[in-house]
Design a binder for these strands. Structure first.
Lengths: 215, 215
DNA sequence: CAGCTCATGTGAGGAGCGCTAACATGGCGC
DNA sequence: GCGCCATGTTAGCGCTCCTCACATGAGCTG
């Protein structure tokens, strides 16, 4: 019975009481430490002080737990992006740069979430909640794109969806390739945040959006 | 003894003769089918018609086989990019657009390689050969960036390394998010190749590089 | 061509994991 | 106060990774 806590710090009886939440936390910790593949259903159970079969009362299988983590990740992500965008205040340019930094900050500070969301291979339609959460997060990016596009004269406006996809792609590319806590897979002459900032400035310039320095 | 081929199509004696190569091929097939996690050392052995312990004579462990696949992937990738760039002929702009298409074509047509290279979590310094192959591939991108930058007037030239990183980030972001054979995780109004082309055009415009239509 | 050597393959097995089925416990609604 | 059933446990199957002792035969050496 080695899975039992020797001295339960949170004493409990036969029933745990809050196992589902604790399994999600354990999963987050394990994914953060060892990547989405290093995470194990059995080990999460062990961390929660519970037998290896207990998790199956809360998740059909390992994938469902992963999908749950990804969903929570997208919700937290959306909250962070939404807060950073702040409805485009004080002006879309300033807010947009905040948004970019928030994107990378999330990928950097919550590697476990980001991993579950984008690297664990969880299909987006694993659950309706997952898809909905992901859509909400993307909606924020799209909204920012629209606000910026509105600054352009009619006739020079690119499709907002396309622009949002470009923003997402560049952000994700930088996060995935260079945004890891360990500095990524390749030494950089600048931080990931600076790299994204510079890339986005060039991209916006290409659209005809000159940044008015806010200070 | 279920792992033995019932009727060996390529009859062999006790010794296989070309096991290492066949294991790599089997791994490629399995990764392509079921993703980098679906691939199993034991199943690769089965496909090669050999006992589950045989692969250990050629690879220290599962990760080493994965790293080998990734290395070959980077080599093939570099070949494809290099061929597409073709030393910038007939002009850097045209060659650059070929390069972008080649990037996405590789990700699309060789999902198993791309997966092993970027999604399997293989650390780049798993072997010197892997790092070298990855560096060579990146060198091509950097070279293209330099050729394009040379078109700009002195004083308006961004760092070539930064530009190469931007290109890689956007390409990888699009490939990872939207470039899957199944259309990716999200329905798109345009193909991944078109999305990248448009994104790169805007980016280049932002740098002051106007594309002269080649036709 | 006989004999040896060692790279390569086999068999058996330990440890761990995902998952299932049958059984145990006790919190909560009646 | 009682019984239901959500939640937890035990036992166990099949699979994986990996190791170790043993088998085979290809190719060198004399």
């Amino acid at each position: 019975m080695s899975w039992k806590r020797d001295r339960p710090d949170t004493p409990r009886g036969y029933h745990h009481g809050n196992l589902k939440e604790e399994l999600v936390k354990a999963a987050l910790g394990l994914i953060g430490e060892k990547g989405p593949n290093g995470f194990t259903f059995a080990e999460a159970a062990r961390m929660a002080g519970v037998s290896p079969a207990a998790p199956y009362r809360h998740f059909r299988d390992r994938d469902e737990l992963l999908a749950d983590v990804a969903t929570r990740g997208f919700e937290a992500f959306q909250t962070a992006l939404s807060k950073a965008w702040d409805q485009g205040r004080p002006d879309p340019e300033t807010a947009f740069h905040r948004l970019g930094r928030a994107y990378l900050a999330f990928a950097h500070d919550e590697p476990a979430y980001y991993s579950a969301m984008f690297e664990a291979g969880v299909p987006l339609d694993a659950s309706p909640a997952l898809r909905a959460a992901a859509d909400l997060a993307f909606a924020d990016l799209r909204q920012a794109a629209e606000a910026l596009i509105a600054r352009l004269p009619q006739g020079k406006r690119p499709p907002a969806l396309m622009m949002a996809l470009h923003i997402w792609a560049m952000s994700h590319g930088i996060a995935a390739l260079f945004g890891r806590a360990d500095g990524g897979r390749r030494p950089l002459p600048m931080s990931a945040a600076e790299l994204l900032e510079a890339g986005m400035l060039i991209y916006l310039q290409g659209l005809g959006l000159d940044r008015r320095p806010p200070e």
